[in-house]
Simulated scan of single mutants.
Amino acid sequence: MKNTQIKYRRMKSLIALLALLVILPASASSIALSNTKQDTVIIELNNNSKIVIITKSRDDLASLENYDINQMVKDLNNQLSDSVEYMEIKDGKAYVNEDDEVEMKDWKINDDEVRIKLGGVEVDVDTDEMDRWDEDDWEDRKKVTYEADRVDKTTHHFNVDIGLNNWLEDGSFPAGNSPYSIKSFGSWYVGLNSTNRTWVGGPLFLEWGVGINWYNWKLEDPDYIIQEGANEIEFNLAPAGQNGTKSKLTASYINATFVPMFDFSRGRRKITSIESGGIRIKKYSRKGFRFGIGGYAGYRIGSHTKFKYKEDGDRDKDKESDNFFLENFRYGLRAQIGWKGVELFANYDLNDVFTSNRGPINADGNNASLSAISFGITL
């Protein structure tokens, strides 16, 4: 039944349809076959619900005997919610009656299975079935694509922030000739986040959770070494004979975030389910436009410097772990904006990277106040 499209107006009609399909001969009080059109068959049920079958010829109608309609309806019932108005089934081979028919399960994880969730993709792997899986199984995969308006009170997902970071001095990036000027490309920001999404009402959601992230500040001039001095963080030129190739400061934090989000699609999602042997894949794609601004707070759990250089033709590196006068606590503002499957973020720390009067000495001879900033994409 390739390219079949099924529209559902109300869940009540679907529930009645499921019950009556199973005991159709006994429970349908009146079944009328409309012969007014050769390519249309209408089955009327006793609760004002109908099954409409549209075919191009009588031969196509007869071919329906090869399909497991009961299994198809059961699968739809497992996937649908009260507000689903449209569902499309692709690859009708998934429902052909065969001796070795495989039932589509409810995607409940078993003890011998592995589940991986990343962003909008969920993968279940049954290791026992995978031992018997081959590439021919993929040709007979089951695929269901549909749009759902269901809004769960709270959903959980794991995502990854990947982007770039820098720091600002008095609202501007440090001058290019400054020892602590940051090289934008290569100063990576990475965050691993466990996030919950709670529906408040209407288009308003709250995204909240915890995670771990890493700042990597890579110096524009790799000949400077980042060192902890007696009174402040220092950026000193490498000794003669050492030609720097990379110099960076890395700090890791554990964070809590809280971001109110306006989702104008009101949680609407496109969902694609694929099953083949021991592999089950479920992909979620958000719909419409959304944005939000919130806050975060974090605590530093580690920091180190790394200096790579060449000396007498040999490559070498020095790595040192310390606190480097970094603030233990950080807090700031987070903005998120998304369109369908794309999600962007930006973070701005409201406090300084280094403790008061411990920042690097600037051109005016004062301790520079540096604020961390990062931006990128959420996967």
Rank of each mutant, 00 (worst) to 15 (best):
N77D: 09
G295D: 01
G209K: 10
K143C: 05
D149M: 07
K12R: 13
A297R: 04
L118S: 10
E220W: 02
L24G: 06
I69H: 00
V121A: 14
D322C: 11
Y95T: 00
P360M: 05
L80D: 08
D314P: 05
T250E: 08
K50Y: 15
E311T: 10
E113N: 06
E311M: 09
D60E: 10
E103M: 09
N193I: 13
I377M: 07
A297S: 05
R290K: 10
K90M: 09
I274Q: 15
G163K: 11
E103C: 07
F291H: 02
I89C: 02
P179R: 01
D124T: 13
N77H: 11
F291C: 03
N166L: 12
N196D: 11
E220D: 11
R266W: 02
I293V: 15
F345E: 00
G302N: 02
G163Y: 03
Q5H: 13
I109Y: 06
L168M: 06
D221R: 09
L168Q: 01
A62T: 07
G92R: 02
W214E: 09
T55Y: 13
G241P: 00
R58Q: 14
I69L: 02
D82Y: 10
K218F: 08
Q5V: 13
N357M: 07
R266H: 04
G278L: 07
K248C: 01
W208L: 08
D128C: 01
P25Y: 05
G92S: 03
F291I: 08
D136E: 14
D131S: 08
N66D: 04
E275L: 04
D99K: 06
L64Y: 01
H304P: 04
T127K: 15
I15D: 03
D352E: 15
S356H: 14
N48K: 15
K306W: 05
D170R: 13
L17D: 02
K50A: 07
Q5W: 11
G201Q: 06
G120R: 08
N328Y: 08
G294C: 06
D75K: 04
V200H: 12
N66M: 01
I6F: 11
Y189S: 00
R290S: 08
G313A: 00
A175R: 01
K142Y: 03
T40W: 12
I54M: 14
D91P: 07
S63M: 12
L206T: 05
E169V: 11
L20A: 01
F235N: 01
S252G: 06
S371G: 11
A256Q: 00
R286F: 14
D131W: 08
N323P: 00
I274S: 13
I361K: 15
L64F: 06
D106G: 09
G295V: 03
D59M: 10
